[in-house]
Each structure stands twice: as C-alpha cells, then as structure tokens.
Nucleic acid binder design. Structure first.
Length: 301
DNA sequence: CGGCAGGCGGTTA
DNA sequence: TAACCGCCTGCC
C-alpha cells in the first residue's frame, strides 16, 4: 500500500488541540455524499458546508472534498502524525483505481453505465470488522433512521467515550462514543440493552458478541454465516465492508428492485440475481451492488 | 393509521 | 430445501 501513497501530494498541519488536518491533492473518483450515503455506514453526517463528520475506528473526523482536494480533519479519538498513512488512506480505499473498475463494469451494460454516472464518486470503505458486524445485525429488517438511532444509543450506553476538545464540532444526533467491544456486549443482557430499543436484534447482538469472544472474529463467509442474526444479506454486507470480499453482492429490497425493474428478474428470484452477479460482475460484484443501490435509491427518492 | 423497512430463525411439508 | 410465519420498533 505504501507505493500507492506516492500518487498523492499529502500535506499535514497540527492544530492547537493536538489533532491533525491532512490535505490530499489529486484524488479522483471521490464524492463524500456518494460514499457516506450509499448504505455502507451509519455514523457519518453531512454538514451545512457539504463536508461530512463521522465516527469510525475509534476516531472522529471531518472529511471534505473539493476540486480533487481531499481534506481530513481529525477531531477526537486516535490521532497520530501518521494516521493518514496508517488509517484514513485504507479506510477511504485511496489505493484503488476506481476508474478501471467503472470501465470494466460499464462494458456492454447500459444499466450499469447509468448507475455509475449517478454515483461516480462511490468508494467502498474499509471498515473495522467488529463495527461492521454490529452495524449490519442492527440493520436487518429495519429502516435507516432507526438503524442510526439504535447505533448511537448503543454506543452511548455501552461504548467507550471519545473526548472532543473542540466545542464547535457539531455531531448532530451522534454520540461521541465508540461502539461497544465484543467483551462488553457479551457480558450484557437483553434487559440491559432495552434502552437501545433493538427489538429482537438485542439477542442476536449478544450471542454474536459471545461467539466472537469465544472463537475470535470471523475470517470467511462461512464463519460469518455461523453468527447469530447473520443471514445471507447481512453476511454479504459484512463480507464486503469488513472482510474485503469484493465478490459479495448483498441483495436487499433495493437491489431486488433494480434487478427486477432494470434487469428483468422476478421479484423473489434471489438465486437468479446472485448467479447473474457472479457471472457478469464477478470479483467486482460489490462495487456493482453499490452503484446499483445508490442509483435506484436516488431515482426513487 | 396500517404497511413496511437495507432479514433472520425456527418450523413445517 | 423451499416456503412460510412471527418478530421489536417506529418511520413514512
């Protein structure tokens, strides 16, 4: 990964509060809205100036993008001089050539061409595996505002606090806490989690945390499937966002809608859809899914 | 207000 | 192994 770093001109400033600001020039195929609003994460919020503030991997940061210049401002949590190289470069997937991915996916596929046009700045974040597991167990049979609410309540109830020095930072509805560790969650009870209002997902979360404490984090799709509350859809999301399994193709109601409306599949034909992705998108299925997901949601909004 | 949401687990045939 | 049902909650 260090080699790909050379293609960017990176500058760093230290702020009074000890945190850092990085400016990265020459970033292509990047749009913060496309990235943070395409269903892969739930803890980033758009600011009035168009930048995004979020919590990930034990950090709070603000990210802005304009004129091929990416700005990352560290606000709280882990912040070292090398944090761009050590964390953000990989988190934002800056080593990947999205132009090449888009060209490949577009070839002979007019639906994909349109989808990519609408979400040209999408990137698949490299998220912390455990955070991804928790997030997507919460997401099942749930709507986005409630997923976000549950996530914040869970962080505040059981997560480690992140100290924010700058009082001007607007976290909105977000709580400056990390998501709880597997150990912390494993020791909790359904009654203890009641204030989070997870519904039946509370038990899934606790049982999965206990399994992780006992057997370690999952490493394969089979490991994922063995976790409580993780079925095909959630496993594909975690595989894609947390395990770098780019052949994953999470089929949710929106993707189902695209595959029906634009590719002609029967509504319930998940098997056919998955087979189509495997054959036509292959190792780029995850990227294809993100473009399609963003596209159908934008057109239905 | 009811239907439904970025599904899953459990049961039944 | 496929189809079906109930599930917490609260948004739309």
């Amino acid at each position: 990964m260090t080699k790909e770093l050379d293609k960017y001109d990176v500058k760093r400033k230290k702020k009074k509060d000890g945190n850092y600001v990085w400016t990265i020039q020459g970033v292509k195929d990047f749009d913060a809205k496309h990235i943070f609003d395409c269903g892969q994460c739930f803890r980033w919020r758009e600011q009035p100036d168009g930048s995004w503030t979020g919590i990930a991997g034990g950090r709070i940061a603000n990210i802005g993008f304009d004129n091929n210049i990416l700005t990352i401002e560290s606000l709280a949590g882990i912040s070292t001089p090398k944090d761009f190289q050590d964390y953000w470069f990989d988190y934002l997937d800056l080593g990947r050539d999205y132009g090449a991915i888009k060209r490949k996916l577009s070839r002979g596929d007019d639906v994909m061409k349109s989808a990519i046009k609408g979400g040209q700045g999408i990137r698949i974040l490299n998220q912390d595996l455990w955070e991804t597991i928790v997030s997507f167990i919460i997401s099942q049979n749930n709507n986005i505002p409630r997923i976000k609410g549950c996530t914040e309540r869970l962080a505040k109830l059981a997560g480690e606090p992140l100290v924010v020095n700058d009082r001007d930072i607007d976290l909105g509805d977000m709580a400056p806490y990390n998501l709880p560790t597997p150990e912390k969650l494993a020791a909790m009870t359904v009654e203890g989690l009641a204030p989070v209002r997870l519904g039946y997902r509370a038990r899934y979360l606790i049982e999965t945390a206990q399994a992780v404490v006992e057997k370690g984090l999952p490493e394969s799709m089979d490991d994922l499937g063995a976790l409580c509350g993780v079925g095909p859809k959630v496993a594909n999301c975690i595989g894609l966002f947390g395990l770098h399994k780019y052949n994953s193709f999470p089929i949710d109601v929106w993707v189902k809608r695209v595959m029906h409306d634009l590719y002609g599949f029967d509504e319930g034909d998940n098997k056919g859809m998955a087979a189509y992705a495997e054959e036509h998108f292959g190792e780029l299925s995850g990227f294809a899914q993100q473009y399609l997901f963003y596209y159908i949601r934008e057109t239905n909004r």
